[in-house]
């Protein structure tokens, strides 16, 4: 390994962790939902990269360690689901139907809103799977023939918005059922929202984790079924 690469890796790791720690501190201090730690840290890092004219590829290789942990971090949701298995059993049908309704609404509303606002066919197809977790969304986009980077942007934006809006929405519409809150967060804003749901409570987090898997798989199946029919 040459020194350049070691510098690259350590600089981007330290930058990421430090910015995230600062963002967590900011959100704890201000308690404003708009200062979502993920949103703030992504914005700050993007600004720094553009200002310092660091090539994006060198940052990406630098934070390879963090990206590699995304797999275990998603898989570990199984642990929180396992802890709530009794509630999952008793609420099996509501969770399944809720995810189904949510996925269909998400796909249809995203597609037709994009067409309505004149964003074009390409953007519409790429934003269609945006409520699912990133890997599923990318797979669905490649099935539909959309653009991967637009899908990624839509997925992240939706996730952050879900994390910001969902506690407010639950409060505004008096949704006190914790299972409903968790499933709704997981269906509309996948793993980024689940991080927020885990902050709200153990049960919400576990239900959100279930909803990621169920709604993601349902979206996948619906798209494949629709393609074979048409």
């Amino acid at each position: 390994m040459d020194i350049h690469m070691i510098l690259e890796v350590s600089a981007s790791l330290i930058l990421t962790v430090a910015v995230f720690a600062g963002a967590v501190w900011l959100s704890q201090k201000t308690k404003l939902p708009i200062f979502n730690p993920l949103l703030v840290s992504v914005a700050v890092i993007m600004a720094l990269i553009t200002l310092l004219q660091v090539p994006l590829s060198s940052y990406e290789t630098g934070v390879g360690v963090i990206s590699a942990m995304l797999g275990p971090a998603t898989a570990v949701l199984a642990f929180s689901i396992y802890q709530q298995r009794a509630i999952l059993q008793s609420h099996f049908l509501p969770i399944l139907l809720g995810c189904l309704a949510g996925s269909i609404t998400s796909m249809l509303s995203a597609y037709f809103l994009c067409e309505f606002l004149g964003l074009g066919q390409e953007v519409a197809l790429s934003t269609l799977p945006k409520s699912t977790t990133a890997p599923i969304a990318l797979a669905v986009t490649s099935e539909l023939g959309g653009t991967a980077s637009i899908t990624m942007a839509a997925v992240m934006t939706t996730g952050v918005m879900g994390a910001i809006f969902s506690p407010m929405l639950a409060h505004l519409f008096h949704i006190k059922n914790k299972v409903a809150q968790g499933v709704a967060i997981g269906t509309c804003s996948h793993a980024v929202g689940t991080a927020k749901a885990l902050e709200m409570g153990r049960l919400e987090g576990a239900m959100s984790g279930v909803a990621i898997a169920v709604s993601g798989l349902l979206t996948c199946f619906i798209v494949i079924a629709a393609q074979t029919i048409m």
Binding site: H91, L93, P94, I95, L97, G98, C99, A101, G102, T105, S106, S109, A110, L113, C114, L117, G118, L119, V123, T127, K130, S131, A153, A154, T157, T158, M161, G162, F165, S166, L169, A170, F173, I175, N177, V179, A180, Q181, V183, A184, I185, T187, C188, S189, A211
Partner: peptide, 26 residues
């Protein structure tokens, strides 16, 4: 702006539809 608007509207709609469905079915 349109892109962000689409994301915001769909996020709110999907959240409400899912939550209401779960509550009704349960």
């Amino acid at each position: 702006p349109q892109f962000i608007l689409v994301c915001a509207i769909t996020t709110v709609t999907v959240f409400l539809v899912t939550a209401v469905t779960v509550m009704l079915v349960s």
